[in-house]
Amino acid sequence: MPREDIVTHYSCRQTLAALHQTPDLLNRTAVGKDLFAIINWIVAAGAADVIGVTGSFLVGACNARSDIDLVCYGSRGYEAARELFAERALIRPYEGETLTRLYVRRAKYMVGGSFDAPCARKPENSRASQPARRRTSTVSRSGPTATRRSPGWLPKK
């Protein structure tokens, strides 16, 4: 995409900070509450500079069916994400019947690929059907996400 075509640049780390400072920006759904708990853990762990929020929450398109997409930066971010995913009060691994349902739901997208069994899911109290993800393709080697859409609620640079 040519640089002159980019209208808005979204920062995953700035979004995490904005959602932490102004929780009213989160939708008042179970997934929004789950994300806020995760953000609080990230901030308390001192990892807000190495983990960011991406996906629908990044661009302001979140709703009750949204999932939580996080991105980590560098080895410190990877270690912080590993610690986060070990927090069973926040994120529990898929097991048994829920793992089977996840496999069946995702099988249609796995043609030529493989299934990442150690995925994680949101706590029981979440109504969101999608799992929290360990990795994201939103950030590439070339840098943070750039898009033409604007959510209208993220702080302007």
Rank of each mutant, 00 (worst) to 15 (best):
D24Y: 08
E4N: 12
T29F: 02
A48F: 05
Y78L: 10
V104L: 15
T15F: 10
E79C: 06
F85Y: 06
A48L: 07
R3S: 13
I39E: 00
L16C: 06
E95D: 07
V59M: 02
R76Q: 11
L16H: 10
W153R: 15
V50Y: 01
A17I: 10
R82T: 12
L26Q: 11
D116T: 13
T15L: 09
E124L: 06
L58Q: 14
T138D: 14
D24E: 14
V59C: 02
P131S: 04
W153L: 12
P23M: 09
V7T: 15
D69N: 07
A64F: 11
V7P: 00
G77V: 11
T54I: 09
Y109M: 04
Y10A: 03
V104N: 13
R135M: 11
G52E: 03
R141H: 12
W41C: 04
E79H: 08
P155V: 12
T22F: 08
P144M: 09
M110C: 05
R92W: 03
C72S: 11
P144G: 09
D24W: 07
P151H: 08
A18C: 06
D116V: 15
V111N: 13
P93M: 00
F85S: 01
I39Q: 00
C12V: 08
W41A: 14
V104A: 14
A61W: 08
D5V: 11
C72G: 01
I38N: 00
D67R: 06
I6M: 01
L154E: 09
G60Y: 08
H20K: 10
A30V: 07
R134D: 05
A120C: 13
D34V: 14
Y78V: 00
G32P: 03
S56M: 04
L16F: 10
P131A: 06
